[in-house]
Design a protein around this nucleic acid. Structure first.
Lengths: 198, 198, 198, 198
DNA sequence: TATGAATGAGCTTTCATTCAT
DNA sequence: TATGAATGAAAGCTCATTCAT
């Protein structure tokens, strides 16, 4: 029943997906939907919660615990891309729909995102501690890098979704692209060879 | 009058922002809104068009033409972050709201994004041609890097917007973070020192 | 529920009768009206169809099949006047309201009227064939007579409706008046004793 | 300016003809319309009044005063048909539109119609006094006959208007048809040779 | 438990009508 | 005088939500 709701919300958008549509898509009657989930808002929240939990679980499960930070990051990214590719509706729900609706859900999805950002932040910080440190990174800098990395990942996930039919990258390719792109830059930065406007 | 609409749409979302609200916020009466902009959809489209044009113009105007590719990218990013910081509602309209509404607007904003991605792609390709090239990049790879970079920029813009009150980065800091992070990685990649899962 | 709509439409007119009024008059809520009849136009069309069918059925049922043409006409007219007297709102809907609204309904009611005119035409033609025929009637002439007769009947129905409270004619009186008036004239005409301006 | 209003009301109907349309059709601006005629209702009433007066004047002017009753009726009918044929919009306004709107105008047009009916009634009564009178007509009977005659005339006017392009009757033909049909019947009736259901 | 039937509340849109010039 | 600009009021329609069964 949540499946139907996720599909409807992801494809038609929150307001354009009517409870009639969802009930029909789920093959049940509308009052039944109200029996289990008390309102449209709660239904949407439940969808968001479920998809967020599934995504976090997929990423968590993919991370190779104990491996070096870069390997952990890469494996997590691979899991992320694999999950978003396999669940495009769920991903659209989280990334496209949930953010447009103010109070209740945006926070839910923001919390999930914050969790992932925190995980990435921690990996970057670990790498920063372990690697050559010509230069120290301040907390805000690390946070910024994490946000950038997560945003890049989201963008690649969208792009992979759009181009899935044609020649979009596989999950592992996308993850590798990102590592090549960003992680190496991080290394340079730590070695004091960062880019400067001059 | 468009200002009011942009604010309302950005903060409440398309469907939750009623025409009454918008008219009241603009200090005029509802029929006047309909006189100038014929329907809610057209009003939204006009807002999206205006904000998209303003953003593209801001980025275009900030790019230092003729400078090296990295400098061009940096200056464009600085303009981007400066604009999104100064016009948070416009940025929210484009990045958060317009994508959720199917046919007419999502395409408008997608076209704008594609334009920016194309610009970045071209800069990366230029850098790839000029730099040491132990390794050639295929077109799909360059495209992926551009998407990643743009996504990272969007994410940083969001983050800067959320954290603007506290200790969020300035436009130039955000741009520098991104260059440090990604551009240096690109250099490594071109030198054949890319990251690999092994 | 259609009853209420017929009343409202007949008394207030199509545009002046709001769906709120109709719903209230019917003792139900507005969405219920929309559930059964999908729009104001469809509701009006349904009313027109129902009243037209009822009127035609009343006339059809009243005609004494197999009787001489004059007797058939008289019985049909009696049925017509009886029905319009008993259903003044339905009659007003057909004769006064439906004609003012262009495309879908005016045609519906015009078709019904044409059916009745055709029936009368056929009776007149039958009488013309059987009676003394000093003079032949051309088709256009017969058609004109039928139109005149139907118009006279409509006018009498209106008059009877207006004067119903006071001393208006009964259905049978009205039918007799019309027969006296027109049918005898038809006989004269066929006998070559028609009126001429000289 | 009234011309434009008559056209608009006759063709689009009262509610469907907006004041914008009328002003544009008249080539003036809306406030000017309001300056001369204070409201839509008054504008409509003015149109109805003008057209009613014109029709009555046309009929009056056509009647050959002093001639025998039948000749008077015929000439009046000829004038009626000639006028309705020449002013189809005015006729539609009176016969189709004005009746659908309750209070103010329907009475106006009803008064005009009553005037014509009274005139016809008087002619019939004159004929009844003068002709052979095997049988006396009571007032209600005469009134009914007049109503029937007027209704027949209206119906023929509509029919002639619809069929004007093709082979519809001319004004004089229509008048003659009516006289043939009805007047002769009246003669019979007065001679005691009326039709009876037995 | 599961639903057909019904509704309250609100939204977009239109239009007759009026100022300020 | 004549109008561009603006609005109050209401209408059609939809949808999340709930009884009665």
């Amino acid at each position: 029943m949540l499946d139907a709701a996720v599909r409807a919300f992801a494809r038609r958008g929150y307001s354009h997906a009517s409870m009639d549509d969802i009930a029909e898509l789920a093959g049940v009657s509308k009052p039944l939907v109200y029996l289990y989930l008390n309102s449209k808002e709660e239904l949407f929240a439940a969808c968001v919660r479920r998809e967020a939990a599934a995504l976090v679980a997929a990423v968590r499960g993919a991370v190779e615990r104990g491996a070096p930070a870069d390997r952990q990051l890469w494996s997590g990214l691979s899991g992320f891309f694999a999950h978003t590719a396999r669940h495009p509706d769920g991903w659209a729900l989280l990334h496209v729909q949930a953010r447009t609706h103010g109070h209740p859900y945006a926070h839910e999805v923001a919390a999930m995102r914050a969790e992932i950002v925190a995980f990435v932040t921690q990996l970057i910080a670990a790498a920063a501690r372990r690697g050559a440190r010509e230069r120290r990174l301040v907390a805000a800098e690390v946070s910024g890098l994490a946000h950038a990395l997560v945003g890049a990942a989201e963008s690649l996930a969208d792009w992979a979704g759009e181009a899935a039919d044609r020649d979009g990258p596989s999950a592992q390719e996308a993850a590798a692209t990102l590592m090549n792109f960003a992680w190496a830059g991080l290394g340079n930065l730590l070695r004091g060879q960062g880019w400067s406007p001059a």
